[in-house]
């Protein structure tokens, strides 16, 4: 069996017999302190020569590099998605609605901490203890207009903001 067979692809490498006559075998490779095949399909393969080991190491490094690239790409996609949704949440309601029409809702609510982001984005500037902004608004039946300050000094006022949908 020549060197070409020893440096064969993964599947065949697994089934190669140990060939001490070619300088191979796991004990020898271990003795050189060079086995770092943590995440390759070659774990458990019989190392049959120094060249074989070097080949496996090169494969391992390459696999690791692609794995890390994949992780970095995933993190970048997540951060971008997070930022885009957070930015959308900071927009006025009508623009937020238009943006969200183009967002994958299950991903927004499933993959992001969306409720916490929402509470942060819609916190608003008013705090307890600050003066309530004045307003005068019509009742829904046009019957009268109500001014918030008309209750001052008399009764607390409960305001329930909402809409039909």
């Amino acid at each position: 069996m020549g060197m070409a067979t020893i440096l064969s692809p993964a599947v065949r490498a697994r089934s190669l017999p140990v060939r001490p006559d070619l300088g191979g075998g796991r004990p020898k490779a271990k003795a050189k302190g060079r086995i770092i095949l943590h995440c390759s399909p070659f774990v458990g393969a019989d190392i049959t020569s120094v060249e074989h080991l070097e080949y496996l190491e090169r494969y391992n490094t390459r696999t690791m590099k692609w794995f890390l690239r994949g992780v970095v790409a995933l993190v970048a996609v997540y951060v971008t998605f997070f930022g885009a949704v957070a930015l959308a949440m900071l927009q006025p309601p009508e623009r937020f609605g238009r943006i969200m029409k183009h967002m994958p809702a299950p991903l927004v609510w499933g993959a992001l901490p969306a409720p916490r982001m929402w509470l942060w984005a819609r916190k608003g500037g008013l705090t307890e203890g600050s003066p309530a902004p004045a307003f005068t608004l019509s009742t829904h039946d046009h019957a009268s207009r109500v001014t918030l300050s008309s209750h001052r000094g008399q009764r607390p006022v409960v305001l329930v903001f909402g809409s039909y949908t």
Binding site: K123, L126, T127, P131, P156, V160, F161
Partner: peptide, 23 residues
């Protein structure tokens, strides 16, 4: 009031915000 989509407030007799719910 940063009220959208819904929110609750209580205004006290002096016209100050006594309670503001989370969004």
């Amino acid at each position: 009031y940063t009220a959208w989509p819904d929110r609750l407030y209580v205004v006290d007799r002096e016209g100050r915000i006594s309670y503001k719910s989370a969004a």
